[in-house]
């Protein structure tokens, strides 16, 4: 970015400039007129109550998402909540702080002695994980603004082959390890630097960021939620928690007639056949489907075969 000559010149001139700044070459004049200099005015600091309001809204949104997904089973409700999250956490609060990036702050707090983590940032890191342990990944479904913008821009989703889906699914692990390593060593916040959508939320960003975001959105027209599935480092942590969740969104086995249309209908390729579960509606026991949306883990349906 900076060529060697500039660097050398900067290195030489820095002490000179620093010395010059401390010297008042031209003394302040004694004015004959009754001039008085205006005061140095700085705008007031921002109101940081917003950050606590964010945490409150995050809790409410997570609770509502769990209710909509598990009790109401309302796709429309989840979509409406996703729109709200996109507008509030995305465009209004300009995408920062987000839970995805907060994992770096937690790492930095542990590994860098001088770094202190603000409490709202810690809440943004921990709350989605805690809710996921109870409800599954409802954060991804309707609360994450990065997920919401991709959810709304899916146009003609194609089904990726299983091997490709699984191979690309490894990428978030690599990304998470790199991001945490960068944060721990104080090199920088990799996730924030390559946040695809924060440029859109702020209506302006470096060109590389905007191009990356546009690329993700363009891919997302056909491959649904590409950032969530193949890059999001926080999704790795959420996925781990989701495996151990108390409740999940499930396909109701009592009603399921094994038509298996849902496997093709799922834009994320998350519903996959899995043997060994009994379906009361058809009296059939064998290959069945499991609901894996949008997490990467399958689990059997809560159905009990007759003895």
């Amino acid at each position: 970015m900076r060529n060697p000559v500039t660097l050398i010149l900067t290195a030489i001139s820095t002490p000179v400039i620093l010395a010059a700044q401390t010297v008042q070459r031209f003394p302040r004049p004694d004015f004959e007129s009754d001039y008085s200099a205006p005061l140095l005015t700085a705008p007031a600091a921002r109101w940081f109550g917003w950050e606590y309001l964010d945490v409150l809204l995050l809790i409410l949104a997570l609770a509502l998402a769990g209710h909509l997904a598990l009790r109401r089973r309302s796709r429309r409700g989840l979509l409406a909540l996703a729109v709200f999250s996109l507008l509030y956490f995305g465009f209004w609060r300009q995408g920062c702080i987000c839970a995805v990036g907060a994992s770096q702050n937690v790492t930095a707090a542990w590994f860098q002695t001088e770094y202190l983590i603000p409490l709202p940032v810690l809440a943004f890191f921990a709350l989605p994980l805690l809710f996921t342990l109870f409800h599954g990944r409802t954060f991804c479904a309707a609360v994450c603004p990065l997920g919401a913008i991709q959810e709304l821009t899916v146009w003609r989703p194609v089904k990726l082959p299983l091997w490709l889906n699984h191979t690309l699914g490894m990428l978030p692990w690599v990304y998470l390890c790199l991001a945490l390593l960068f944060a721990a060593t104080g090199t920088g916040f990799l996730i924030c630097r390559w946040d695809p959508f924060v440029g859109f939320f702020r209506l302006g960003a470096p060109l590389s960021m905007l191009l990356f975001g546009a690329l993700i959105l363009a891919v997302g027209l056909f491959v649904a939620r590409p950032y969530c599935r193949f890059l999001c480092p926080y999704g790795v942590l959420l996925g781990l928690c989701s495996r151990l969740a108390r409740r999940h969104v499930t396909i109701t086995p009592a009603e399921c007639v094994q038509c298996r249309l849902c496997e093709d209908a799922c834009p994320f390729g998350a519903i996959q056949a899995r043997p060994g579960v009994y379906f009361p509606a058809t009296g059939w026991r064998g290959t069945t489907t499991t609901w894996r949306w949008p997490c990467k883990w399958s689990r059997p349906m809560p159905g009990h075969p007759p003895d």
Binding site: A109, L116, P118, L119, P120, L122, A126, L129, L133
Partner: peptide
């Protein structure tokens, strides 16, 4: 699940020890 619940809560609690009430800019 219970174990990881305790883990996440413990991690958050332990990190909050290194946090501050005041935001930095």
């Amino acid at each position: 699940g219970g174990l990881s619940l305790a883990l996440v809560a413990g991690l958050a609690g332990a990190t909050s020890w290194k946090s501050k009430r005041k935001t930095q800019v």
